[in-house]
């Protein structure tokens, strides 16, 4: 460490710009370089290499093939629909919660449960839904009796509709967590001001609250989109074979090295993922900047 010993005369504290103290950051920077930057750079470089190691656009152009394109489309549909449903339901739940005082039991329970469901791994959530709608599930028989679905488990659970349903299960909680601060920032004084000026509740919502909340809402929705697009565990636990979405196609290319050059194809798919998530997160950062103007 760059820390001077106790016997050294105390350095003039604080703001002097010098190389000395920055040396203390080296371990951290080196660590991140090895375990975050090098893997990312490996992916980006690998995507532009052919099997011999030379520069080539071969892998990138394979992304336009049928299978990867279909996977990307399904991934985008999955991310988009689970983000929209998650955002709407999550915002509604956040509003129901925010109208109760911050110290209420309801608020604490909801935020804690949401924290667990949104952050804890997707494997358990996939299994929870298998236990609900799969073979011998809690609701399988009841649904079969009343809607005539397959009593041996609802097969759509392992396809796109099922993925959307299960993803929504962690998207709604995530929305509550990220949208709650924006709702809390909506000051009661603004409503009072609007009412004083003769606005009805409807007018207040349409002309004051919604426009104020719109950037935060759209931003949160983008975050949900990126979250769903990058998610892997839930889908992997639910769909054990085949690759309907991009993350599972990456799994296929990683685990089946039979075909030569599959590894580099995995790099290209991963690069595709970086690009999509980066675009979405940039938009998110931009919207966040707009929201922070009025948030406390």
């Amino acid at each position: 460490m760059a820390a001077p010993s106790a016997t050294a005369p105390p350095a003039p504290t604080g703001r002097r710009l010098s190389v000395g103290p920055s040396v203390g950051l080296l371990p951290f920077l080196a660590y991140l370089t090895i375990f975050l930057l090098i893997p990312t750079v490996t992916v980006v470089v690998g995507a532009f290499q052919n099997d011999a190691g030379g520069f080539s656009l071969e892998k990138i152009s394979t992304l336009a093939d049928d299978t990867p394109m279909r996977a990307l489309r399904e991934s985008l549909i999955l991310s988009f629909s689970s983000a929209v449903v998650g955002a709407v339901l999550g915002a509604l739940l956040a509003y129901l919660v925010v109208t109760s005082p911050p110290t209420s039991v309801l608020r604490r329970v909801v935020t804690s449960v949401c924290g667990v469901l949104a952050q804890f791994g997707g494997v358990t959530l996939a299994f929870a839904w298998i236990a609900t709608l799969g073979f011998g599930g809690l609701l399988t028989q009841a649904l079969a009796d009343s809607f005539g679905t397959d009593p041996n488990g609802i097969s759509q659970l392992y396809e796109l509709p099922g993925l959307i349903l299960v993803y929504t299960y962690f998207q709604v909680p995530l929305m509550v967590i990220v949208f709650l601060p924006a709702l809390e920032g909506l000051r009661p004084q603004w409503r009072e001001a609007a009412v004083n000026l003769g606005a009805s509740t409807r007018q207040y919502w349409i002309q004051v609250a919604f426009p104020l909340l719109r950037p935060a809402f759209l931003g949160s929705m983008l975050l949900l989109f990126a979250n769903a697009f990058a998610a892997y565990a839930t889908a992997a636990a639910l769909v054990s074979q085949g690759a309907p979405i991009t993350p599972l196609l990456i799994r296929t290319s990683l685990t089946s090295e039979v075909t030569l050059g599959q590894a580099n194809f995995g790099y290209a798919l991963a690069l595709e993922m970086i690009v999509v998530v980066a675009i979405v997160m940039t938009l998110y950062a931009w919207l966040l900047k707009r929201t922070s103007r009025w948030l406390p």
Partner: peptide, 21 residues
């Protein structure tokens, strides 16, 4: 920025590039 970076780089991408490391 560096600490929040893992939020934007999916774990799946990291694992793809992790082999050499």
């Amino acid at each position: 920025f560096l600490c929040l970076l893992p939020l934007t780089i999916p774990a799946l991408v990291i694992v793809v590039g992790l082999r050499n490391v």
